[in-house]
Write a protein that binds this DNA or RNA. Structure first.
Length: 158
DNA sequence: GCCAACGTTGGC
DNA sequence: GCCAACGTTGGC
């Protein structure tokens, strides 16, 4: 089992969208980055815990916890010319892009902000806090996972 | 809205 | 295979 962090823009799809789904489960489509795809395809397993991260918004940070509900399968939005992430080069007979299903577990009691995470020397190796990082799906080590969870009920460091 | 950082594309 | 141009990400 591995731990993960997945980013989404709350204006497009935030944690409340997921929580509102029937069964609190939804597919995570639209990933168009090879590194992120390879991790979904090769490493993500049902039951893996995932931090839900809000990006490109007023207060970027970790807002909740979900889990992988279904391993990688083809992302049909790549074949849909109307879709935002349509990829004409993805062949339905040999799909280039995959998605997973995720299940809502809970919202955190507060947002653990990016600036707060950046202030923690222990987390300096996380891709999330590194300059210029754009990876939308990344692994989290068990130690990092526990440390971050411990911040939830601690006073914000920033 | 700005812009730095990064990934992808395509000409050569 | 190189690399300039381009598009995207995402913090600020």
């Amino acid at each position: 089992m591995r731990h993960w962090l997945m980013k989404s823009e709350p204006d497009v799809y935030g944690i409340d969208h997921l929580a509102a789904q029937s069964g609190k489960t939804d597919h995570w489509d639209g990933v168009r980055n090879y590194q992120a795809r390879n991790m979904m395809r090769d490493e993500m397993q049902p039951g893996d815990p995932v931090f839900f991260y809000h990006s490109n918004c007023a207060e970027p940070g970790i807002v909740g916890i979900m889990e992988i509900a279904r391993g990688a399968y083809p992302d049909p939005t790549a074949f849909d010319p109307e879709a935002r992430y349509y990829d004409p080069k993805s062949d339905p007979d040999n799909p280039r892009w995959v998605m997973v299903d995720v299940r809502f577990k809970r919202k955190l009691d507060r947002t653990i902000t990016l600036s707060e995470l950046k202030a923690q020397p222990v987390l300096a190796e996380m891709p999330l806090v590194r300059k210029g990082n754009r990876l939308s799906i990344m692994p989290v080590t068990p130690d990092q996972w526990e440390f971050i969870l411990g911040l939830e009920h601690a006073p914000p460091a920033l």
